[in-house]
Design a protein around this nucleic acid. Structure first.
Length: 793
DNA sequence: CGTAGTTTTGTTTTT
DNA sequence: CAAAACTACG
């Protein structure tokens, strides 16, 4: 084949080795996408495999689309028959067809992180636990890591040791039960349940094994254990599995990526051929050398030697600024000047940073300088409030068991259905084992919903009308429009007349047009399918080549992309490596940050500029930062540090005795603060919040691991801690106070949810009796008597 | 029951 | 400096 001529020997070998397991270790910029596409093209054009026998897993939908286009260019429109998708959308498609085999309904909903947080919150509320102590984020991340390791709630329970883990097991169980009763799946479930389906329904598995005889996995270093199991199950029979990865670019371990998947690949798939791609076609030797110098500091890696035969280019630059503001001004200013003088495109440039929060300054500067830009990431389009509201309507229409969505919209726009009514309905629902929506349709039987009844009626009739029309003839776009109109959602926004409301309306219009696009591009478009697509898109997916703007994004989001000129911003300790990693004292966390740095640097083709700020405003307070250790890991002779010298005896000393050339780096360094009285900063110590310990002596003597900086983000607990609300707001609305209670201290009582317990205290409040009960199952709880409806036993 | 105004608290990274 | 949570009032 012609295209084989375009490959170097190992690349060519990788393309032609079609039978049996193959592990390709592909360094950054070594042409792995080219290898993957040519490999698929080869399979098809040599009639080794039919297009529908090929499954290619990519990391993002965007990568999938690009790969399809490139294959298309080589083999023509047969490419459309190839299944190219992400792990998540692949699993979703499989589950849509057969999830009923493991007891779920095929019209399941997918919950995003936000939805999952709500679920945890409601569990905390039900268990009467203080959300201040039990953080949703931590609970969720534990659940997620369990799922990534395919540990079921039962397994988790049986291996739980100690109170803490027992409690975590409670959360996991309750969470999973709740998702299931809402007929909802979280992101991890998509993988976990597919594996479960494959295990429990061998016929289904076999069908897919027969279908996908040739499997390819890109970005293999970022797969986790469930993903590996999924692939293993599918590939076991024909063993034509080709994975491509680079251990140096593994940056998703925080989300369960398991590096052992690379290291043990050869054991699991015996007879694996290993091919290394070490020639880099992307970057200049200057960029490559600097990146290699940084990554060489990692100990956990397979040694490799990336090389290039490209001609020399410019040195990698480092610039230090007094503030993030100046840093942004510099980068944006340079980009603008370059485009104006050389007439290039803005899309040649990218600004990469560690956290999304850093985008703001660059955005401001771009606006000010009239530089077109696009921010990737941050708040996903589909997680904006107005979009989520409408999505919740759609989800309610598609899946009546999704309580979360119903709860979100039942009073949006305001229908005068209040918290008290909702609590009644929820109690009724859980008593009768109904979904929330089912309970709504049964509202006349629920005590205490008197005035709200009519409003609830109106709501349910509206939803069932939507259901009827959506089942009938209405496209998703039309359905959205009808929802906006009939609910009065649009009218409410229009009445607001604020910029914010106008922006929301614009977003909704964009949403409609996205729904329209979807209908145009999809053959058998349906509401279910639309919702699934929408919940699995990443922001990067919407970035296209043809827009001429500077891209602003995190280094994570930049994975797999390349640009002529890259600015890596925020090269400071505690920014990058992040405060979390730097403060953990954990080498492997630092190594992950270093790999991220390597990924960032190797995105650049011709020019790479590293920038840092010595001061940044974090959560409204100034923080003084040292230059990142990653800068130090680049030998000085490889760096263009700006040339100009700074005045000696820098009063801030952060760079001083590090051998760092506080005097060499940065033309702006410290400028901004020289006018201020350095002692001013002491006053920060007097505020209630503690302040990133600024103490130049400590810094310069102890280097990076000093206690002052690692403890610096801890907040002083002030008087606020003492304020604790007695119960949730829901309960406080209750005004009906019983005149006497038919139980007293020491009595055994029963509660609908908490079971039986002993009354340990009763306190008469202005509105109601506050009863303290020691429950057998859930421990001590305080509650209002009229609300709790305790029964003496 | 709804809302405006006040206080508290939070930071990685993402499918 | 925001967003979220809480409080107080109409």
């Amino acid at each position: 084949m012609d295209f084989l001529q375009e490959l170097n020997p190992p690349q060519r070998k990788a393309v032609e080795h079609t039978e049996g397991p193959l592990l390709i270790l592909a360094g950054a910029g070594s042409g792995k996408t080219r290898v993957l596409t040519y490999r698929i093209a080869h399979l098809i054009s040599e009639n080794i495999a039919a297009p529908w026998n090929i499954l290619a897993i990519t990391f993002t939908n965007k990568a999938a689309g690009e790969m399809r286009d490139r294959i298309d260019a080589v083999v023509g429109d047969r490419a459309s028959m190839i299944w190219v998708a992400t792990f998540h959308s692949t699993c979703c498609r499989i589950l849509r067809r057969d999830i009923d085999r493991i007891g779920y309904d095929r019209s399941f909903t997918i919950y995003d992180t936000d939805d999952c947080r709500q679920v945890i919150k409601s569990i905390l509320r039900e268990k009467g636990l203080d959300p201040k102590i039990y953080k949703e984020r931590t609970i969720l991340s534990r659940i997620s890591s369990a799922k990534n390791e395919m540990i079921s709630p039962e397994q988790f329970r049986s291996s739980a040791v100690g109170r803490e883990e027992e409690r975590q097991a409670d959360f996991y169980e309750a969470y999973q039960t709740k998702l299931r009763s809402n007929n909802a799946l979280d992101f991890d479930d998509l993988l976990v349940l597919t594996v479960e389906l494959f295990r429990k329904a061998p016929d289904v598995l076999d069908e897919y094994r027969e279908r996908f005889r040739y499997i390819l996995v890109d970005e293999y270093q970022d797969t986790n254990s469930v993903q590996f199991e999924f692939i293993r199950l599918l590939a076991e029979k024909y063993r034509n599995l080709c994975v491509v990865g680079d251990d140096d670019q593994s940056i998703y371990r925080f989300r369960g990526a398991n590096i052992r998947n690379i290291l043990s690949f050869e054991q699991v798939f015996r007879g694996t051929a290993v091919i290394r791609l070490e020639q880099n076609y992307r970057s200049t030797p200057e960029i490559l050398d600097a990146a290699n110098a940084v990554i060489a500091n990692n100990t956990e890696r397979k040694a490799k030697k990336l090389w290039t035969d490209q001609g020399h280019g410019k040195k990698v630059r480092f610039r230090l600024f007094g503030s993030g503001y100046e840093e942004a001004e510099f980068a944006v200013g340079e980009i603008r000047a370059a485009v104006q003088t050389d007439g290039g495109k803005y899309s040649r440039f990218a600004v990469l940073y560690r956290t999304n929060a850093q985008s703001r300054l660059f955005e401001e500067k771009c606006v000010a300088a009239n530089v077109p830009y696009k921010i990737v990431g941050g708040v996903n389009f589909y997680s904006r409030k107005e979009i989520k509201d409408i999505l919740s309507y759609l989800k309610t229409i598609a899946n009546g068991s999704d309580d979360l969505s119903v709860l979100r919209i039942i009073n949006v726009p305001r229908r005068g259905i209040g918290a008290a009514t909702l609590t009644h309905i929820q109690e009724y629902a859980s008593e009768k084992g109904l979904s929330f929506y089912e309970a709504l349709t049964d509202a006349e039987n629920i005590p205490g919903t008197g005035r709200a009844l009519e409003k609830i009626r109106k709501f349910t009739t509206m939803i069932s009308r939507f259901r009827a029309v959506s089942a009938d003839y209405l496209s998703v776009a039309d359905l959205i429009e009808q929802i906006l109109k009939e609910t009065g959602y649009l009218a409410e926004l229009e009445a607001e007349q604020t910029d914010e409301a106008r922006a929301r309306i614009e977003n909704l219009e964009e949403f409609i047009s996205k729904a329209q696009d979807y209908a145009d591009q999809t053959e058998d478009a349906s509401l279910d399918d639309f919702l699934q697509q929408v919940s699995l898109v990443a922001d990067i997916d919407s970035v296209s080549e043809d827009m001429d703007s500077v891209l602003l994004m995190t280094m994570h989001a930049a994975k797999g992309l390349e640009f002529d000129s890259v600015y890596l911003a925020g090269m400071e300790e505690n920014t990058f490596p992040s405060y979390m990693a730097a403060g953990s004292g954990n080498d492997s966390e630092i190594e992950e940050e270093r790999r991220l740095c390597y990924v960032g640097m190797t995105r650049a083709r011709r020019e790479l500029t590293l920038t840092a700020a010595s001061m940044r405003t974090l959560r409204g307070e100034p923080q003084f930062l040292k230059v990142s250790r990653f800068i130090r890991e680049i030998p000085p002779e490889m760096l263009d540090a700006g040339g100009r010298t700074e005045r000696r005896g820098n009063p801030y000393g952060q760079y001083g005795e590090n051998g760092y050339g506080g005097n060499r780096y940065g033309q702006y360094g410290g400028e901004r603060f020289r006018e201020e009285d350095p002692y001013d900063r002491r006053s920060f110590g007097n505020t209630d919040r503690s302040y990133a310990g600024y103490d130049d002596r400590t810094y310069s003597q102890n280097g990076y691991h000093d206690g002052a900086s690692s403890g610096s983000f801890a907040r002083k607990t002030g008087a606020g801690v003492l304020k604790r609300s007695a119960g949730s707001t829901l309960q406080e609305f209750r005004v009906v106070k019983a005149d006497r209670l038919d139980y007293g201290i020491g009595d055994q009582v029963r509660h609908v949810k908490f079971g039986t317990g002993t009354v340990t205290g009763i306190q008469e409040g202005p509105r109601d009796f506050e009863v303290t009960v020691e429950f057998d199952r859930v421990g001590k709880k305080k509650m209002f008597a009229s609300f709790a409806k305790l029964k003496k036993v």
